[in-house]
């Protein structure tokens, strides 16, 4: 079950370094036209590795509120 509500990507700021894609433990992100894109939101476990180590402020993960 997806733990993230949504993943926001700022394509204007993303420089396509692939750090987030390669660090993602569940393979939820992919590269499309040299920029990062969400491949499968269902796979995201909201570990925040991508957001923590994005050097370009380009990716933000919104966690799901606990019910």
């Amino acid at each position: 079950m997806a733990k993230a509500e949504r993943i926001e990507i700022n394509k204007k700021w993303c420089k396509g370094c692939e750090i987030c894609v390669e660090l993602c433990p569940t393979n939820a992100l992919e590269m499309v036209d040299f920029k990062v894109a969400v491949k499968d939101l269902e796979k995201c476990i909201a570990c925040m590795q991508c957001e923590l180590r994005c050097p370009d402020f380009a990716i933000v993960v919104y966690k799901k509120e606990k019910e």
Binding site: K15, G16, C17, L52, P55, D56
Partner: peptide, 14 residues
């Protein structure tokens, strides 16, 4: 001011 001038993959942003 963003995006910054640092190269793709430069860790200064982190």
């Amino acid at each position: 001011k963003l995006p910054h001038i640092w190269c793709a993959g430069c860790t200064y942003g982190i």
